[in-house]
Design a protein around this nucleic acid. Structure first.
Length: 431
RNA sequence: GCGGACGUGGUGAAGUGGUUAACACAACUGGUUGUGGUCCAGUCAUGCGAGGGUUCGAUCCCCUUCGUUCGCCCCA
């Protein structure tokens, strides 16, 4: 009989929307300054855009909202992440040919994952992400991180740290893969089910297993850094040098491998260390991907990008006591003291609105007292009283809440008087 | 997918196997205050997530289910 929203979804209510507006505005500013352009891709794509080859991630294998409609055999999937759709679009629209390279893009929008909800994790959540396609330059790895880092710094967030690592190139990865498989060969039988699966699919992920974390065999595992090719090592060092140059603090974490299988070279996570974040503390994370553009049928081009969880960003701000979004006060609230005068009151509000004053009035024929309470609640700067007098000679009362002064004016002149009052106000502020 | 906690009016939140489900805030109405923010009075859950069961009788006991929340896993 009663309806409720699906598990893991949430309404963003008017009382909270100004937080989102503020964040979105700031995102646009930063992306503008960094010369990134917004792209909006579909909320759903063909399933194979997300489910590619031998992807071993839970996100792709267990958490996607996949559906087939009517008699169609087409399988569609609600996007669980932003990168795949953006790269698909980049290739499909041949952006690799018509624009200056690299193409620098950003997106903001909902993502869908069928996970068990908890703090900082919803089934529909919002990500702000950037992707830079068509150039492989360590400075771009640094630039994207700098964009995110300066954005969250501008918000005032402090309890954050950048964890970074490199996965090297294909040569590095396959050599390291083999080394890991060799290393775990005799012990994999005694390790957890996930690790057994990872052993053949993506042995790198064994390293950040929480279950088997303390096994001796984990501690003696070969290190990625020993298998990096010269080129990969140089690349990573240049990335770190870039971060140093911009004074972005970081920690190299050689266990960091990330969940998505397409990453190569640089991978990073920016996590909040604020205790109020709960266990989902990654605010934004990403990395470089060498094979994706080609996978989607484009030329051999590298890309780098990251995604930021907006809900987590809000949590992080709340955790650090950063106030987001303030409700702007009303300029004028029109009180109608007489039902017969309501049309006149309505005209007054309309005039005020036409002049750009944020105004409202009572629509419930409430008592005088109740209407005045609305003035307080809505923090209106001006109360305008429309009574039976307006029917006789068109006179209404304008009351300035701040100092309780009031004047009687003809309703036709209400905008002029408002202009005057707000003019005075400005003078006051400038003094 | 696994585990813990929880689910009472707009909100916060008491409560008990048995005729009227505290209290506070908010809201609304009336009075008072020069036309509001003070103060006073009144009104506001046939219902205690939903569906079963036990019982003479359940919001309080049992089962199921839905949902919330926190953790694991995973990830942004």
């Amino acid at each position: 009989m009663s309806y409720q929203m699906p598990k893991g979804t949430q309404d963003i209510l008017p009382k909270d929307i100004s937080k989102w507006h503020q964040l979105e505005d700031l995102i646009k500013q930063f992306c503008y300054v960094y010369d990134y352009q917004e792209i909006r891709t579909p909320m759903f794509e063909h399933t194979n855009v997300f489910k590619r080859g031998n992807d071993s991630s839970d996100m792709v294998n267990k958490e996607m909202y996949t559906f087939t409609l009517n008699n169609s055999s087409t399988s569609l999937t609600l996007r669980p992440e932003g990168t795949a759709g953006v790269v698909r679009s980049f290739v499909e629209n041949k952006m690799y040919g018509e624009s200056d390279l690299p193409v620098k893009l950003y997106y903001v929008g909902p993502q869908f994952r069928h996970e068990r909800p908890q703090k900082g994790r919803q089934r529909i959540f919002h990500q702000f992400g950037v992707e830079v396609l068509g150039a492989k330059n360590p400075l771009l790895d640094v630039e994207t991180i700098a964009l995110g880092w300066s954005f969250i710094s501008a918000l005032g967030l402090k309890d954050l740290k950048v964890c970074i690592n490199t996965l090297g190139d294909d040569e590095t990865r396959s050599a390291y893969r083999e080394a890991l498989q060799e290393h775990f060969k005799n012990d994999i039988e005694h390790m957890c089910g996930d690790c057994k699966r990872r052993y053949s699919q993506n042995p790198l992920r064994i390293l950040d297993c929480k279950v088997d974390h303390d096994l001796e065999i984990m501690k003696t595992a070969p290190k990625m850094s020993d298998y990096l090719t010269k080129a990969s090592k140089d690349y990573f060092e240049q990335v770190l040098a870039g971060l140093d140059a911009l004074d972005i603090p970081y920690e190299v974490d050689d266990r960091l491998v990330r969940g998505l299988d397409y990453y190569t070279h640089t991978v990073f996570e920016v996590v909040s260390v604020n205790e109020q974040m709960g266990s989902q503390s990654t605010v934004f994370a990403g990395g470089r991907y060498d094979g994706l553009v080609e996978y989607f049928g484009g030329p051999e081009m590298s890309g780098i990008g990251w995604a930021m969880g907006m809900e987590r960003l809000i949590l992080a701000c709340e955790g650090e006591g950063i106030e987001l979004g303030e409700q702007a006060a009303l300029d004028a609230y029109v009180i109608c003291l007489n039902e017969q005068a309501s049309l006149a009151a309505f005209k007054v509000v309309t005039m005020l609105r036409a002049a750009g004053y944020r105004s409202d009035m009572d629509y419930l024929n409430r008592s005088f007292k109740a209407q005045f309470k609305s003035v307080d609640r809505k923090q209106a700067k001006i109360a305008i009283l429309v009574g039976e007098k307006v029917l006789e000679d068109g006179m209404i009362t304008i009351k300035k809440i701040e100092d309780k002064t009031q004047i009687e004016v003809n309703m036709e002149d209400v905008v002029d008087h408002m202009d005057q009052l707000f003019e005075d106000d400005h003078d006051h502020h400038e003094e």
